[in-house]
Deep mutational scan, measured.
Amino acid sequence: MFYPNSPQTSPQLTQIPYGQQYAMMQRQIQQPYHPFATTEPQARLYPYHYQGPIQQEQGGFITQQSTAASPQYVQMRVTPVDQSIMSGYPNQTANGSSSSSFNYNIHPQQQQQQQQQQQQLRHHAMPVGSVPLQDDRYRKQLIVNYLAPDVTSTDLHELFSRFGELDGARIIYDKQTNMSKGYGFVYFCHAEDAKEAVERMSGYEFHGKWLKVGYSTNPLNIVPSNSSPYVHAGSRGAAG
């Protein structure tokens, strides 16, 4: 039997160049792979992502010199942007860049009308829970959420009447099932009393439920100042 490094198959040491006398086997001759043993700084910083320098080929596509990437890492192929796409944008300079302001050559009167329309939209648009300043009635009506099913309009009136005089209180019921929808409205005579009720009743436990109280901004629920107070009856038909 002959071994790869046996004296019968191995040459004389004098015939082997210096430095390879003890590297006779194939696994010894093959050098191990060192990912950080390279002179390129990109490979030292990113050993798993770097795959060699990027070269520009004919046709405008950018390719990489090395083989496919590892399945664990996804390499994105980048193509140059066609400058003709950006030619339609206004205020574009000769080098292809555009300024931040756009001039669509709008007539001054049209621009003024658009600004007025935007101001009107901001004036009428009102986020949930906010209180408008032009109508004091919005500051007097509250919406009470997360009410228990057994709470009546009379219970709601008695709960909030300790903060001040009320114009009314009612629970909203479903017309088909005649069941409470879980929320109601309270109408105060003074805005200061309503503000105190919002601050003190939010998070209050009532009939096993934690109440959420806020201003009601729905104009359909506003009680006119010259109208008669609501009837605080315990029956659902009268309260709904």
Rank of each mutant, 00 (worst) to 15 (best):
Y230L: 06
D82F: 15
T177A: 03
Y138H: 04
P32C: 09
A233V: 12
R27H: 14
T14N: 11
D82G: 12
Q30H: 02
L13N: 06
Y215S: 00
I172M: 02
S98Q: 13
E199V: 05
T67S: 05
S66A: 14
N145T: 01
Q51C: 12
V223C: 06
D174I: 01
L220P: 00
R236M: 05
S100L: 15
G184W: 01
T79Y: 15
L147C: 14
Y215G: 00
G129Y: 13
Q120C: 05
Y3V: 07
S98A: 13
D167G: 02
Y173M: 10
Q65C: 12
P41N: 02
R162P: 13
V213P: 02
G96Y: 08
Q111D: 14
Y89A: 05
I222R: 09
G59R: 11
P132Q: 12
R162T: 11
S101L: 13
S235P: 12
A191I: 02
T79R: 07
S130M: 13
T38F: 15
S227I: 08
E165A: 14
M179V: 10
Q115V: 11
K212I: 00
S87E: 09
N91C: 14
I106H: 03
S130H: 07
D155P: 11
Q42M: 03
V131L: 14
S101C: 11
T9H: 06
P132W: 03
S161H: 11
P32K: 03
H207D: 00
D174W: 01
S84H: 07
L159R: 02
K181N: 04
G88K: 04
E192L: 03
R27G: 14
N178D: 14
Q20A: 03
P224W: 07
Q30K: 13
G240L: 09
S66L: 14
V144R: 00
G164I: 00
L211H: 01
S225H: 06
R200Y: 14
A37M: 14
Y46I: 12
G168I: 09
Q83V: 15
G237P: 04
V198C: 06
G203F: 01
H123E: 03
K140I: 00
Q83E: 06
G214P: 01
S225L: 06
I222F: 08
I143V: 00
K195D: 02
P4R: 06
T177R: 10
N218R: 02
Q72C: 13
I143H: 00
I106P: 06
Y187K: 01
N218E: 00
T217G: 01
Y173F: 10
E165P: 13
V223Q: 08
G59E: 02
Q115D: 07
H34C: 12
T154M: 09
E196H: 15
Y138F: 03
R170G: 00
Q56E: 10
A169E: 06
R170C: 00
F102C: 06
V213C: 06
